[in-house]
Amino acid sequence: MILTQFLVLGAVLFSLGIYGLLSRRNAVTVLLAVELMLAAVNINLVAFEAFWNTPAAHGQIFAIFVITIAAAEVGIGLAIILLVFRNRASGNVDELDLLKW
């Protein structure tokens, strides 16, 4: 196995995440796309760790930090979506244009 194959896979996953982030209307599916991008970042971190092979496994430690932050992000993101849904009876991001000029 070489490093490039993991980097290419990460790039493909990340761009799919960007596509989902930009094209989805439903807020929950937008969050799913963000999770996809974070998974791509994790693959990159772990692959670079396997490449540099640092004695203290810094890449894997950072991957675990990313997983933790992602869990916090999903918790707060879904709470916000729930709140918006309760107030506006809609979970579609393009209908939340109150602040739009």
Partner: peptide, 24 residues
């Protein structure tokens, strides 16, 4: 579930993909 901006979104994600692959 997806809105009308699907093609610009595909274009943007392809641009990101091309940029990352070029960087690699």
């Amino acid at each position: 579930l997806s809105h009308a901006g699907r093609w610009p979104a595909a274009l943007a994600s392809l641009a990101v993909l091309a940029l990352t692959l070029w960087l690699i």
